[in-house]
């Protein structure tokens, strides 16, 4: 019995979604964005949520980050339920870093000022954190843009800066909302590989939202497939491919079988809707 309890304690999941529902009311209709969603993510895990647009995948991580509130259900962080009735404390928010679809840079600040803005807001503006910011800037190859304004930097550099900004306060969890969706294929692959190396180095937990099947398979330990109307979980697919992963794997049979299976899943979901 005691052993069992011990085991329980050790395996407290990092993030839990319990029966989460999100309903949006517009003037004309009620939209069920997320219905009865359950998910468990362990510390250090890399999880993707995939599905057609409008399936509520972004809604999930936005709820977790407190940008919007669930209509019902519970979310747990390190085993502790999040109180969604009021804005999260900075202590809670500090555990997470959110990466938006667009770079979402503030044009009046240089790239470095944008990146270190969370330090100012979180009250972490110490030499140690500044040093860490510099380290992240150099790891991601942003040095030459650091003192430029966003208007002077390329799209890839800006999106990198968005990732770094979400990491500068040393969060334990990264929430990524289709972060590289607007970039071209080559840049996207490059950033995905950079992300994997950062993930490995920092032992950070990542929830990655995407609608790109290959990207999801390449990056994740497991993939949650969602469907629309109402937005709901259809299936969880574990990706049992060796790490470190590389772009060459994309053409290997096992990789292809995973992508095929996922495409079938998403495709069948859409077919069911047509009927």
């Amino acid at each position: 019995m005691e052993e069992l309890v011990q085991k329980e304690v050790q395996t407290i999941p990092k993030i839990v979604f319990e029966n989460i529902n999100k309903v949006f009311h517009t003037r004309k209709q009620t939209i069920v964005a997320v219905k009865d969603y359950d998910m468990q993510v362990d510390q250090g895990d890399f999880v993707s949520i995939i599905g057609p647009s409008g399936c509520g995948k972004s809604t999930l991580i936005r709820m977790l980050n407190g940008i919007i509130q669930p209509t019902s259900g519970r979310m747990l962080l390190d085993g502790i339920p999040l109180d969604t009735s009021k804005p999260y404390s900075q202590e809670t928010l500090r555990k997470m870093g959110f990466i938006f679809q667009q770079p979402n840079m503030l044009p009046w600040y240089t790239i470095r000022q944008n990146i270190t803005l969370p330090l100012k807001i979180f009250g972490l503006d110490t030499p140690e954190y500044q040093e860490y910011a510099d380290e992240l800037i150099s790891v991601t190859g942003l040095q030459k843009f650091a003192d430029s304004y966003p208007i002077e930097a390329s799209g890839g550099a800006l999106q990198r800066a968005g990732v770094v900004r979400a990491m500068v306060h040393k969060p334990e969890i990264l929430l990524m909302d289709e972060p590289f969706g607007a970039l071209d294929e080559m840049l996207r692959e490059q950033l995905n590989m950079e992300l994997l190396s950062i993930w490995k180095r920092l032992n950070i937990t990542i929830i990655f939202i995407t609608h790109n099947v290959e990207e999801a398979v390449l990056l994740s330990n497991s993939i949650y497939v969602m469907a629309t109307e109402p937005g709901r979980l259809v299936e969880k697919v574990d990706i049992d491919l060796p790490r470190p992963r590389s772009l060459e794997m994309i053409t290997q049979p096992r990789f292809v079988s995973y992508t095929q299976r996922l495409v079938d899943l998403i495709g069948s979901v859409e077919l069911r809707q047509i009927k």
Partner: peptide
């Protein structure tokens, strides 16, 4: 709204939001 959300993810207070984001 996306800029409000950015400040929200950092738990920024009203004055910080005004200074860093809203006024500019």
């Amino acid at each position: 709204i996306i800029r409000h959300e950015l400040m929200q993810t950092m738990g920024s207070n009203k004055f910080q939001s005004l200074r860093h984001m809203i006024y500019p």
